[in-house]
Design a protein around this nucleic acid. Structure first.
Lengths: 72, 72
DNA sequence: TGAAAAACAATCATATATGATTGTTGAAGT
DNA sequence: ACTTCAACAATCATATATGATTGTTTTTCA
């Protein structure tokens, strides 16, 4: 897989899990203490986010970090 | 786990896998096309690196991305 | 023990992610 | 059609990661 795609795939995974939990972007933003628009950037794969952000996201979504990056 | 620790743990994992493969930092740097000292920063957990860097590292080490972040 | 090489840290400039704000689009309901 | 709200994009300032360089520490081996 080309590396540019990995952010898009992980973003889709995050969105998928967030929708499963019925969490809105606004709620997600509050739970993560992260900018609303930054979450959109991450979910859309327009940005290349960090380990700690992924870790916080995994905690809020109640999944393991490994699940979040399992997109191969 | 506090989020500051996740970078340290993943850094240790990377180092562990790199040593298993008998790859020096210099070789690693060449293979990743990444600054030598930045790899040290990542392995020491002094920096909070990105999805794509982790992905490139996983490819060079011949493991899955999920293995790299499996540190819980 | 001494030299050479690898690992590491400090620093500064640059690139990129994020915070913050503003505006636009699209969907749902009336 | 209109309103309302969620999702989304663009922009700029700021924070942080990375590139690049230099020097120090540690390890390895003769």
């Amino acid at each position: 897989m080309i590396k540019e795609k990995i952010c898009i795939k992980i973003g889709l995974k995050i969105r998928e899990l967030r929708k499963e939990k019925k969490i809105s972007l606004q709620q997600f933003s509050d739970l993560l203490n992260m900018e609303y628009n930054n979450i959109i950037r991450i979910e859309k794969g327009r940005t290349n986010t960090t380990i700690t952000n992924l870790y916080k996201i995994s905690q809020v979504l109640g999944v393991k970090l490994t699940d979040l990056v399992d997109v191969e």
